[in-house]
Nucleic acid binder design. Structure first.
Length: 188
DNA sequence: AGCGGGATCCAT
DNA sequence: TGGATCCCGCTC
């Protein structure tokens, strides 16, 4: 078994956002912080499809806050919600598109607390803060990798969480994906 | 310059 | 069910 799994290349993220979202499930997320490797397995994600998607932060165009989400793929779009929790996205598709995948839950694999279900807790466990805004997620210190111990799973599709403000059409779209039966999914 | 809401979490 | 808590986008 390789001790250093291969990084997902930038081209992985330069594809349709719903596809990237689904394919991120089961991948390892590896963050090296203060010399320590923290590893989680992605079990729940949401796709945000750009300015036409009324639930996406980019629906109101380019602003200082959404700059990174309009940037090149494979970078982090990090923001603060409810004044206290950070959420982390991976930017997808070519620069200028304004699309991203929100990481909602990971399963602890190495050096992580048990509290990783939900986007805020995920960031807390991984040590992700607003300082990581725009950070390259194809770097040695912070990247995704194929799980060498991966096992098959089914993908569940559901409406996204907390986006009622987007109106019926966009709130109802099944753009939330998670691994069926996984204990670390944030809600059923 | 001020105002209101939000891709959440936790205790009650 | 509601409180914590603050950045950002919008309006004045």
């Amino acid at each position: 078994m390789p001790s250093r799994p291969k990084k997902l290349p930038r081209e992985f993220f330069n594809r349709a956002t719903t596809l990237v979202a689904q394919e991120l499930l089961g991948k390892l997320l590896i963050h090296t912080i203060e010399g320590e490797q923290r590893i989680g397995r992605v079990v729940e994600v949401e796709a945000y499809l750009g300015p036409g998607d009324l639930a996406a932060h980019t629906a109101r165009g380019l602003t200082p806050r959404t700059r990174a989400m309009f940037g090149p793929p494979g970078h982090a779009y990090v923001y603060l919600v409810y004044g206290m929790h950070t959420c982390m996205n991976v930017v997808t598709e070519p620069a200028g598109t304004g699309t991203a995948v929100l990481l909602r839950a990971i399963e602890p694999v190495k050096n992580l607390s048990d509290k990783t279900r939900g986007p805020g807790l995920l960031c807390r466990a991984l040590g992700v803060t607003l300082q990581d805004y725009g950070r390259d997620l194809c770097s040695d210190d912070f990247h995704f990798a194929v799980d060498p111990a991966a096992e098959p799973f089914n993908i569940v599709e559901r409406p996204r969480v907390g986006v009622d403000y987007a109106g019926e059409e966009w709130a109802a779209k099944p753009l939330r994906f998670y691994i069926e039966g996984n204990k670390y999914v944030s809600r059923k």
